[in-house]
């Protein structure tokens, strides 16, 4: 197992290096010029700044300096556009909290509700409850989250006034972990949850339905277990094998953020930051975001793969 993990980690680092290299070269290959309407004096000044910052050096030299700064000083560069003169790392870390919170709340709401509805639909297979849930699932899976965002904003803020339409600022709420902040996050959490609930519900239903019709369930019933006991002790346990890794990867995915949801609910998160960094050619911020997302994705893959082994001892990692 350790050998497998080490192998995966080495592969992960190699992939990360390739992605970083590509991102570094590609973002700098995009055309970048002084802002439209700049006078020659201003354009000249901007070009001099680029020169002073080393943007005119050969790409490989720039890349070498970039890597050297990371490894020797843990310096991921500076934001020159989005948050002028702020270290890129500081900027990214500052934007992580709201993204993580909104996504975490959405996940905490989605997991119990999604799984519960999935179980109900599986148990009540082909009855009206199953049909109702399946229809709703189809609907919620098909509609993108920004549609819910507009709907919940319109009804729950504009029409009913129950919730604020965007999340509160830190000064309004008094901090990230206050009741007011939690309350203000209600609408984005709901908008994000609908799709997740539907996805989990569909997956749970499918897995549990299969488990309920398995031979071991027949055996369990034959041994005298009630259907309730057989379902909770055997079917649910087996059905959870593919569901749990999915949940684990969702937890890692909460770092990702959603550009559209963040824009609609004015969440100052990493999703927005990433897009802004590309649009504004904020090189160091873009690079750090890319490293962060790539690393998150790769780690999620490893953790999910490893989790199979822990959840189901029959699965041996790295063995033929």
């Amino acid at each position: 197992m350790i050998k497998y993990i080490l192998k995966r980690l080495i592969l992960m680092l190699f992939t990360l290096f390739v992605v970083i290299t590509l991102c570094f070269m590609l973002i700098r290959a995009l055309p970048s010029s002084p802002p439209e309407g700049s006078s020659l004096a201003q354009s000249q000044m901007i070009l001099e700044r680029w020169e002073a910052l080393g943007y005119n050096k050969p790409l490989l030299v720039q890349f070498g300096i970039y890597l050297k700064n990371i490894f020797t000083r843990f310096d991921f560069g500076t934001s020159w556009k989005i948050s002028k003169t702020q270290p890129a790392l500081e900027l990214l870390v500052g934007r992580l909290t709201p993204t993580v919170l909104v996504n975490l709340y959405a996940l905490l709401l989605s997991i119990p509700v999604g799984i519960a509805l999935g179980i109900l639909a599986a148990i009540k297979k082909n009855k009206w409850q199953d049909h109702l849930i399946s229809t709703l699932v189809m609907f919620f899976v098909s509609v993108p989250s920004y549609i819910y965002a507009f709907l919940v904003q319109y009804f729950l803020f504009f029409k009913l006034g129950w919730f604020p339409q965007t999340i509160y600022s830190l000064s309004d709420a008094g901090g990230w972990f206050t009741g007011k902040m939690l309350y203000s996050m209600a609408l984005p959490v709901l908008a994000l949850s609908f799709g997740q609930i539907a996805g989990l519900c569909r997956f749970t239903r499918a897995e549990l339905t299969e488990a309920l019709t398995s031979d071991y369930m027949l055996l369990a019933r034959a041994k005298g277990l009630t259907r309730a006991h057989a379902t909770t002790r055997h079917a649910l346990k087996n059905a959870m094998v593919p569901i749990l890794p999915m949940i684990i990867s969702s937890f890692i995915g909460i770092l990702g953020g959603s550009l559209v949801i963040e824009s609609i609910f004015s969440i100052p998160g990493v999703g927005q930051l990433y897009v802004q960094s590309v649009q504004q050619r904020d090189y160091d911020v873009f690079m750090l975001n890319s490293i962060f997302y790539t690393l998150t994705g790769l780690l999620a893959g490893i953790v999910v793969d490893i989790s199979y082994g822990f959840i189901d001892p029959r699965i041996k990692m790295g063995e033929r």
Binding site: A116, I123, Y183, A186, L190, R227, A228
Partner: peptide, 29 residues
């Protein structure tokens, strides 16, 4: 079996109602 499904359904319903309610209660906009 009916008992389980009733329990699951009730739990789901409870969660759906409780979460927004808790959020509302913690608020003071």
């Amino acid at each position: 079996m009916k008992k389980i499904s009733v329990r699951i359904f009730s739990l789901t319903l409870l969660l759906c109602i409780l979460c927004p309610t808790c959020l509302c209660l913690t608020s003071c906009s």
